[in-house]
Design a binder for these strands. Structure first.
Lengths: 119, 119
DNA sequence: CGGGATCCCATATGATACTG
DNA sequence: CAGTATCATATGGGATCCCG
């Protein structure tokens, strides 16, 4: 597996230096809700409230933050249906489904090995 | 892919509730250095100083924290060679190599799609 | 309903200096 | 060399209240 950064800025012994753009994306995933949000959206679009209920415990502020970051990265798509009451849908983009896959693989591994961890 | 928690505590609409043990492991990975440290150790054991240099930017305190957590989870193995000067080696356990795989897949995906992100 | 605005706290992260 | 001790700061996360 390639450990070196595709930008070629670092040699193989760097793994990746902190300044590598890869880091930004990795950091994006490195927080409490991002991975879960992506997982939740994998099976279809969800509204703000639905997401909040599924993530159980996330505050509206933090959920908004998370979703905005995902939007910025291009993983999530936000659609507003002007109506009363307001209807907003969040949706994984193609790119979003892309990350969802290796992310899901990671979750699967964790689930399969839960018993071996902390033993 | 299985989204539901293996403990069966939650239904499929939960993705996973915050209390699911899966969360703990996910949270373990959800920080700045853990994934990188695992990546660095994938090709062989490293000493504290070597790791610190490869991770470029991590302070000794934080690196210690990271490694201790990985040890506790059973992903990393710490071997002390009593000598002067002191020699300590960090090593991925079999379990550690296990996570390294899906983790590497995630990194690979990120590398392959760097240009599409933030576009 | 879907957030934005605030306030506050816990923790992660960092820089630096020091020690067995 | 491999950390530990300390101090300082940034950020994330959470609770609440409010508004279009």
């Amino acid at each position: 597996m390639a450990l070196s950064c595709p930008t070629g800025q670092h040699d193989k012994h760097d793994v990746y230096a902190a300044q590598c753009p890869c880091r930004g994306v990795l950091d994006l995933l490195a927080n409490k809700w991002t991975a879960l949000a992506i997982g939740a959206l994998e099976e279809g679009p969800l509204r703000f409230g639905e997401l909040q209920r599924q993530l159980e415990g996330v505050s509206p502020k933090v959920l908004t933050q998370t979703l905005r970051r995902l939007e910025e990265a291009g993983f999530v798509d936000r659609t507003i249906y002007p109506a009363v009451p307001l209807h907003v849908e969040y949706n994984l983009t193609e790119l979003g489904h892309g990350v969802a896959e290796p992310l899901g693989a990671l979750r699967s591994w964790v689930e399969r090995n839960l018993d071996r961890i902390n033993a």
